[in-house]
Nucleic acid binder design. Structure first.
Length: 601
RNA sequence: GGGGCCGUAGUUCAGACCGGUUAGAACGCUGGCCUGUCAAGCCAGAGGUCGCGGGUUCAAUUCCCGUCGGCCCCGCCA
């Protein structure tokens, strides 16, 4: 049944044949997308990476080829020799690129068969993702998945070409590297040659790219795999890819302009889009005030308003109490949307707010002169008046309130804002809005660890004029960090780094890191900083997220060839898995895991 | 660590709230017919560990508990 390829050479891709190829004798190879057997004439849609072409077999033409074709099933791999000819006028297919022509088969070779498929090789399938991942090799045959990976290739190609042109040098850094405190949980790799010691997979090439600047490479880049052992999300994988670069003798604007140039190139080459540069910039403070998040989706309004001032002394204890405890009150007014929201939906929103950590979600619905709300009875006339003015409350509006500590209010209302934006179709899903968020605080106070931690990372430079504040008012220190946001998604973040060891030491001190530990964990960088480190800075862009956005895909998994599930497993390879005891012995590793209770028969 | 949703032919779902004869449908698959289809069409047929374990019950796909797996979210992700 099966034929060898023999001396057949592919002459063309299925998907690249056109009317210009008429009368040519061609040899095409690919997968059987579908077969339509009319008893006499047989049609086969043959698919390869470039597309689909129709093969026609007629028993009155070459009986042998036709007889083979009769046996063929979906997703078999076949090779066909035949002549490209016009389709009859009434059977042109405008839905495929090759729809003007067909290949009239003289000879067919069956190169491989296929089992019956677990799902159809089509774009619009409704299948459990687990099954798609288990049969990822089939899932990736679907045009939409193929397009995603081609898009990804296009993005990487464009990034490389841009960076090469700008004088960046691609340098690899090791996967087997050193575990460092701060940041995410490390993936560890045991060392056989140093029993009991471990490498860590890099969370990013951060320290080594800084080292390359100290070495004088001036401009470095890398399409870098990074590893973080944290819980997964729709936009987070334990291993992911960054477009990572670093530049010497620069300040913020140099890096920002380079990113704008690179993203312009990527959007142009990968999607044919012209994007406006420079991108607008917004301070962290303003982003938190207006949107409640440091990665605001600026495709729509529906901004938050801080109304704390008017309720400091309110009789309404939910509001005034929150302020007394150091909290704030913020509101967002969904203008004119009250009639569109059912009571059930409002209740669902309240439940959603609670799942995000809010104690509740107050709301006021404006209907004519009347305010329908569970809270109006607690509000004084002056409070009502002030609220009406501040929030511009008019007939048909519905306003939501959160009162709590600032972090809770902001995170809850920013999530509510996004949900309402989607619910009311306020978001232009076809477009892209770019934004730089700048002027981040350098530090935040971690109340569980009772110390300051970096908002960006410990190598981020404070603003030069704020260095002295490190010792006196650490929370007032602003950093030289910048995040690039597209459609509310954090696509990348970077900073001008600390290039002097005296300032780096001050930073570690502000973080409350033990000097001995610092030397042990970061000593290599401190040493390097002592040997003529130039001022430098850079950024890393999340390739997976960028491609997800460009592809308009709901999940990062759709732009990664072999992604992990939420539990970090790969259903295709079945990693992670147990290993041989002998392997563990070589590594001096003993597994301390509770044995599963064996059922006795 | 926590919250929510889900798991029934190869696939997507219905059946479950209200436990009861043979667990249905569509697509896919198999066989037959069919010479211009392109999601071909028409006819016939096969196909089930109702995720797994336990409990309640005369009786469990259905109710309860646990567990495994998948998805979304909080925490976490410098």
């Amino acid at each position: 049944m099966l034929d060898f390829l023999g001396d057949w050479k592919r002459s063309d891709h299925c998907g690249s044949l056109r009317a210009a190829d008429l009368e040519r004798l061609v040899t095409v190879m690919g997968w059987v997308q579908s077969k339509r057997d009319h008893g006499g004439v047989i049609f086969i849609d043959l698919r390869d990476r470039e597309g689909i072409v129709q093969i026609v077999l007629n028993p009155e033409h070459e009986k042998a080829a036709w007889e083979i074709a009769e046996q063929i099933k979906d997703e078999w791999v076949i090779a066909v020799k035949g002549k490209v000819r016009n389709r009859p006028e009434e059977t042109l297919n405008p839905n495929i690129d090759t729809g003007e022509i067909e290949v009239f088969a003289d000879e067919v070779r069956v190169l491989n068969t296929s089992k019956v498929l677990p799902f159809l090789i089509e774009n619009e399938i409704n299948v459990d993702e687990l099954l798609r991942l288990k049969y990822r090799f089939l899932d990736l045959r679907r045009p939409v998945m193929k397009e995603n990976l081609l898009l990804r290739h296009g993005v990487v190609t464009a990034a490389r070409s841009f960076l090469n042109t700008e004088g960046f040098i691609e340098i690899e850094t090791p996967f087997l590297t050193k575990s460092t405190p701060e940041g995410a949980r490390d993936f560890l790799v045991p060392s056989r040659l140093s029993p009991g010691a471990f490498y860590a997979l890099p969370q990013s090439p951060q320290l080594l790219k800084q080292t390359l600047m100290i070495s004088g490479f001036d401009r470095y880049y890398q399409i870098a795999k990074c590893f973080r052992d944290e819980d997964l999300r729709a936009d987070r994988q334990p291993e992911f890819t960054q477009i990572d670069f670093e530049m010497s003798f620069v300040s913020e604007d140099d890096v920002i302009e380079t990113v704008e140039g690179m993203l312009s190139t990527i959007f142009k080459k990968a999607r044919g889009l012209d994007i406006p540069v420079p991108f607008p910039r917004m301070s962290y403070e303003e982003a938190m005030l207006r949107y409640g998040t440091d990665s605001p989706d600026t495709r729509f309004g529906l901004e938050l308003e801080d109304i704390s001032e008017a309720f400091m002394k309110s009789e309404f204890k939910v509001f005034s109490g929150a302020i007394k405890r150091g909290g704030i009150i913020k509101a967002l007014n969904a203008k004119g949307k009250a009639p569109e929201l059912s009571r059930k939906e409002i209740d669902d929103l309240t439940e959603y707010a609670q799942s995000l950590g809010a104690k509740g979600l107050a709301w006021i619905r404006v209907q004519g002169a009347e305010w329908q709300s569970p809270i109006t009875k607690f509000l004084s006339e002056s409070e009502t008046k002030s609220m009406k003015a501040t929030l511009n409350m008019e007939d048909g509006d519905i306003v939501f309130f959160a009162a709590d500590e600032p972090a809770v209010v902001n995170s809850v209302l920013s999530s509510i804002r996004l949900r309402l934006g989607k619910r009311f179709g306020m978001i232009d899903t076809g477009g892209f809005e770019f934004l730089w968020v700048v002027d981040f605080p350098l530090l935040e106070f971690d109340s569980t660890e009772h110390r300051y931690t970096s908002i960006h990372h410990p190598f981020t430079s404070p603003k030069e004029e704020h260095i002295d504040l490190l010792e006196t008012e650490p929370l007032k220190v602003l950093s030289r960090a910048y995040d690039v946001i597209i459609n509310g998604v954090e696509i990348g973040g970077g900073s001008i780094r600390i290039h002097r060891s005296d300032i780096q030491q001050k930073m570690f001190k502000a973080l409350g890191l033990d000097e001995e530990e610092v030397t042990e964990k970061f000593g290599f960088l401190l040493t390097a900083l002592d040997y003529g480190a130039p001022p430098h800075g850079g950024i890393a862009l999340g390739l997976d997220r960028l491609v997800t956005l460009l592809a308009g895909s709901p999940s990062i998994r759709d732009v990664i060839a072999f992604p992990k599930t939420q539990k970090g497993s790969c259903p295709y390879t079945e990693a992670p898995s147990a290993v041989e005891l002998s392997q563990l012995l070589e590594l001096s590793i003993k597994v301390d895991k509770k044995e599963e209770k064996k059922e006795s028969a």
